[in-house]
């Protein structure tokens, strides 16, 4: 999430500077944000719920506390340093979120304009996080474990395969046709076969996640290694480089930007495999939790799990981008995502 916001905020900086040149204007947005959250809190407390939810009052009080914090932060921004500046930048979003939550609260819990139970109110989702936390956390850990294992195996194998076929024509001769034949097949198509050929659904899913990750990583590593300018090799060779040096210190660093594109693509497709595998075969994880919640018509649990899932996926991508930015500092000024 933050990687997007980093580039967004730099792009938006000049506009923001213009908009907030007038301090009373910035107070105005902060005030509106505070009022929006106050409205959300009051909307929770003002009317009786149409259903039976235990966290309505806590949610209302929480929203009012947030409103108070925003109010305090807005007028004390100059004394809060970075936090105050951050609040000022995000104030328009806080207004939108407060308004959205108010509308959501009123439309579901208070007047049931949206049909229940398919559209649970915010307090129902809060209730999931407080009351069903152990099960949700277990699912989160199961998903992370499965995803991480499969992804790391797939990325490592894909990277090594990509370097080998990019470097050696002999390896390329044998691996390339296999890759072309198997690679484009969506990894999920293997699900039925994988589940009865592997000893456990867990190992089957790990294999499929690795497969989904490995294909794009292989192809992009390969194209990265293959596209390294021969001038780099000439330079290194005249300086006394042996073949191992050419691979490790020339081909791989030069191919690294491509490799990260592959890792990014692999991450996306492996998420898809993870969720499907958990829904179908694995008896743990967020995908399984979603499936389980649907079976019990526990719609609030589904939304809660979906929110957690999206945070995890976006967190994983942010982590990947951070790693890339650290490893590829030399690329500064070159195209970025």
């Amino acid at each position: 999430m933050s990687t997007y916001s980093v580039s967004d905020s730099t792009a938006a900086a000049p506009r923001a500077a213009v908009a907030f040149a007038n301090p009373s204007g910035s107070y105005g947005v902060g005030l509106a944000a505070s009022l929006a959250w106050l409205a959300f809190g009051l909307s929770c407390l003002a009317w009786p719920d149409v259903g039976d939810w235990s966290r309505t009052d806590s949610l209302g009080i929480g929203a009012i506390v947030i409103a108070a914090c925003v109010l305090f932060g807005t007028f004390g921004a100059d004394y809060l340093g970075g936090a105050g500046e951050g609040l000022r930048k995000r104030a328009p979003w806080l207004v939108a979120l407060g308004a959205l939550f108010t509308l959501w609260e009123v439309a579901t819990a208070k007047f049931a304009w949206l049909p229940l139970p398919f559209f649970p109110p915010p307090q129902a989702i809060l209730e999931v996080y407080t009351d069903d936390l152990p099960k949700l956390l277990d699912s989160v850990f199961a998903s992370i474990k499965l995803q991480l294992g499969g992804y790391l195996i797939g990325a490592a194998v894909g990277f090594l395969t990509g370097v080998s076929i990019g470097w050696s024509q002999k390896v390329g001769y044998w691996v390339h046709p296999v890759l072309r034949f198997i690679g484009p097949l969506p990894a999920t198509a293997w699900l039925p076969i994988a589940f009865f050929t592997f000893p456990s659904s867990w190992s089957a899913s790990t294999f499929l996640i690795a497969l989904a990750t490995g294909f794009p990583v292989t192809v992009l590593t390969w194209s990265g290694v293959a596209s390294v300018s021969s001038a780099y090799y000439d330079v290194a060779r005249t300086l006394g480089a042996k073949p191992s040096f050419l691979v490790l210190k020339v081909a791989i660093p030069a191919a690294l930007p491509h490799v990260f594109v592959g890792l990014f693509m692999g991450l996306g497709s492996s998420f898809a495999v993870l969720v499907v595998a958990e829904m179908i075969g694995v008896k743990a994880g967020l995908g399984w939790y979603l499936q389980w919640a649907q079976g019990w018509a526990a719609y609030a649990n589904m939304y809660a799990a979906l929110i957690v899932m999206s945070l995890l996926c976006s967190g994983a991508i942010t982590l990947l981008f951070r790693t890339r930015d650290r490893l590829l500092v030399w690329q500064k000024g070159v195209v970025k995502w």
Binding site: Y232, D234, V235, A236, L239, G240, L328
Partner: peptide, 25 residues
């Protein structure tokens, strides 16, 4: 050692690391 028309410095290496290339190799 050859110096080519294009400097062909390795963009992922700093000036120091580029110069050190031969000794490292």
């Amino acid at each position: 050692v050859v110096v080519f028309q294009d400097p062909t410095l390795f963009p992922w290496r700093t000036v120091w690391d580029n110069v050190a290339l031969g000794l490292e190799a």
